[in-house]
Design a protein around this nucleic acid. Structure first.
Lengths: 192, 192, 192, 192
DNA sequence: CATGAATGAGCATTCATTCAT
DNA sequence: TATGAATGAATGCTCATTCAT
């Protein structure tokens, strides 16, 4: 547990999340991040050797958090439909409360600021889902298609839906959008 | 006929497409765009008043081209499944040959470099699909969900699949990925 | 008479006068001068080889015009006080109607954009005044001080007064300011 | 004590003074100012947010210094002629040693680079002279003309004379020119 | 004579990073 | 650990000037 997550470190990451999504990577001066985080410019470079290291740390933190949310939701009991529904809803719920993190992932996962290696490491948090899907296929609950393809389609659909839901003001409407989206996504995936 | 699309203008847009996707907006100097396009730096600013205007023009051009591809494919005859399949395959085919354009849209559609107004204008090229989907619902071929939701889930799924397919080297594998992805996407959408 | 003073040439000089006083030399693009003059950018360089040549031509034209005004006024009859008063008032009158030209001279006579040679040539239009002053001294009407000093003090006082008068809106007030200023200036110069 | 006047700040102002008078505002690259001041370009912008702020600061500094010189000289004892003579000579003396500052004021006081507000603030350093002149008028020593007019004529005459004197090499000649000029200026102002 | 597209050197300003305190 | 003044390379954009039409 090398990561002690000082308050200052956390503040820097939080400020960076907001600023990077709102202004892009190069559009965000490190001095501004430091300012918003309430620390001196030099301090930022004490915690992160370079600006690149900062965005990659942020990326990994978010991916890890998202992975944990999914893993926890995956422990729910019930049949496959229920299980997948739970996982999707848990992710959507978290995404709605952390829209900026979804936004961040969407914007930076294919950007040149995240190295291939970091991207790999980030994705690794979701790999257990591949196994789960394979299991669902074997049990005849999920259509027999390559699990990677299923995962990428489901997750891109979810991300887009969360962002769409976040654009609604009314929480009831938000949930309606999410429920309908998840219905559609799972129709595509589940064997009827 | 305001748009005469000079050769130089085209060259600048082409160079910008490649560089923006590879290095990001702020990561790409205008001088480099000009160099790659084979024109002087001043010339770039003769055609586009600012760097922002350049990226927005590029965005609109691509969205327009994508809209045209879809519109043409939508004229095909046949039942709904065939029709949707044709549309998706045409889009995927185009996307595969223009992976950079897909990449560009994915990376910049939610970025702060494209103004809301431009985003709106870009999306307008796809609005006719909403009507089509509504028609399909009325005819009982497409599940009865809000057409906007259906459109956003289908298109995000398609984009992701195209990018995944583009990562494959072998054209045969590419098409297999695409076919399987489109199958899955349409399962979700079509009423069986 | 090499100078045929085409309409276009005149238009360029007029536009340049306004723009140079309002925005400075380097602050005024030649393209803007051309635009305001209603000609193409290339045309400006047909009449003036460089931007420097333009400002120097403008400077000389103005100095020449000012010299002519003074020379004409100097032909008036009457005693020395009357004569000097006439000269000053004529100059002030012209300056009031051509405040921009006064402003221009004030701003650029010591600026680095006017070469020493051009400055010399411009000043030559006023040299006859030195002789006049010398004559006035010899006749005992003007105090016995070096004519160059007298000239420079009188003319700087006049310029400043014209600019001050031009700042007033009411023509009556303008003239009051001018008359009072000229009174004061001549008190200093005339032998009582 | 907001103004700590760091060494670096002082060096930048000194370099700017020389360069602006010699090459004009737009004719002077900030990089050259920094170089001449012996600091990095970034440092210049650490002390002055923009090039405009730099020239305005410089203008205010000089006006303040000039005002102080006059104020100190105004404390001298003696009759009005002596007093005005002292003030003028003190100013001329300072101007001779600081010809560049005089040159700067002459060149930029009516230029578009100094905002109206800054001009006002600069002029405020001389306002006490208006009161002095009014007093002189009341006591019958100075001719009864609007004090503002008297001030502007005297000061423009002085400035011009200082510049003329500065053009002489020989210090003796310089002082002769100044003395004669001040004589002439005061003849115009003083009631005999 | 007149045009205006094209050029590319030049400049104001920003910003990641360092380092003395 | 924390600070923030100082650095200077890098970049978006401007503009005098040319030249093919």
């Amino acid at each position: 547990m090398k990561e002690q997550m000082t308050d200052k470190r956390k503040a820097i990451l939080a400020a960076a999340l907001t600023l990077f999504t709102e202004r892009g990577f190069h559009g965000t001066p490190t001095s501004l991040i430091a300012q918003d985080a309430g620390v001196a410019t030099g301090t930022l470079f004490h915690y992160f050797k370079t600006k690149e290291e900062l965005i990659e740390s942020l990326y990994l933190d978010i991916k890890k958090e998202a992975g944990t949310v999914l893993r926890d939701a995956g422990k729910s009991k019930g049949d496959w439909r229920e299980k997948l529904d739970n996982i999707c809803m848990a992710y959507a719920e978290w995404g709605l409360e952390n829209a900026r993190k979804i936004h961040f992932m969407q914007q930076f996962c294919y950007s040149p600021f995240i190295s291939k290696a970091t991207h790999q490491e980030g994705v690794s948090n979701f790999l257990f889902l591949i196994d789960q899907i394979a299991l669902g296929i074997k049990e005849g609950a999920i259509r027999d298609y390559p699990p990677e393809i299923i995962l990428s389609i489901v997750s891109s659909g979810l991300m887009t839906s969360i962002l769409a839901a976040a654009r609604e003001k009314d929480p009831q409407k938000q949930h309606k959008v999410l429920n309908q989206s998840i219905d559609l996504i799972l129709y595509g995936v589940l064997q009827e």
